[in-house]
């Protein structure tokens, strides 16, 4: 079984760490994995994406259009941008909270985030919308949005991993004091009750 996953968002939102967590969890289960990351100028507030490919018989680190099983979107507009990669019947997990580009703030471009969410609702059957503001309020931190989204991705059934796999990966990768570990665990299971 192979899985193609795209994580997307805006530079600085923590997509790379989330991608590392999935990869670590997969590696611990001896699932072959290849990823491609956006590193460089786009990390300064530009559109970023990670391609992850899990399973046997994979050569290319990049995924083609119509081949993605799961998109984990950190931002509605960026998720719509990646939608052509989704295969028919693929799943999307998306944070409803937009990141307004400077170009829109100063009136040089337009960005209607609500229209993006509506578009996703209209075009993706297997859609999970994560209320990022509510999650931040309840968890007391906006910094674990990536882990909240991973939790929702787990529950979409398209990640091919268990909650305990990701928990272990968090312990291995996020080398932080016990209290942050707790916060991360809570974030991982937040979408169980929260959405």
């Amino acid at each position: 079984m192979s899985k193609n996953i795209i994580l997307c968002g805006v530079g600085g939102q923590g997509t790379i760490l989330a991608s590392r967590l999935i990869a670590t969890a997969a590696m611990d289960k001896d699932i072959p994995i290849k990823t491609a990351e956006t590193i460089g100028m786009a990390q300064r507030g530009g559109s970023v994406f990670s391609h992850l490919r899990l399973g046997e018989g994979i050569n290319s680190p990049l995924i083609g259009k119509g081949e993605v099983d799961l998109i984990i979107g950190f931002e509605p507009g960026e998720t719509v941008r990646q939608l052509p990669f989704l295969k028919q019947g693929g799943a999307v997990v998306v944070s409803s909270r937009p990141v307004m580009p400077v170009s829109a703030m100063i009136g040089q471009s337009k960005y209607d985030a609500e229209a993006m969410v509506e578009y996703l609702k209209a075009n993706v059957e297997h859609l999970t919308i994560v209320d990022a503001d509510k999650a931040a309020d309840e968890l007391g931190s906006a910094k674990v949005l990536n882990v909240v989204l991973l939790g929702a991705a787990l529950r979409s059934g398209e990640l091919g991993l268990e909650e305990s796999d990701l928990e272990n990966a968090i312990r291995e990768k996020v080398k932080v004091p016990e209290k942050f570990l707790e916060l991360n665990k809570k974030a991982l299971s937040w979408s169980k009750g929260g959405k």
Binding site: V10, G45, G46, S47, G64, K65, G66, E67, G77, E78, V80, R81, L83, P84, F85, L86, K87, Q88, G89, G90, P98, M100, P101, S103, A104, Q108, S109, K110, Y111, D112, A115, M116, Y119, A122, N123
Partner: peptide, 15 residues
């Protein structure tokens, strides 16, 4: 592969 047929999306954010 068969990609889902998608209508034209709203204007994407310029970043």
């Amino acid at each position: 592969p068969a990609a889902a047929e998608l209508p034209q999306p709203p204007a994407l954010p310029v970043r």
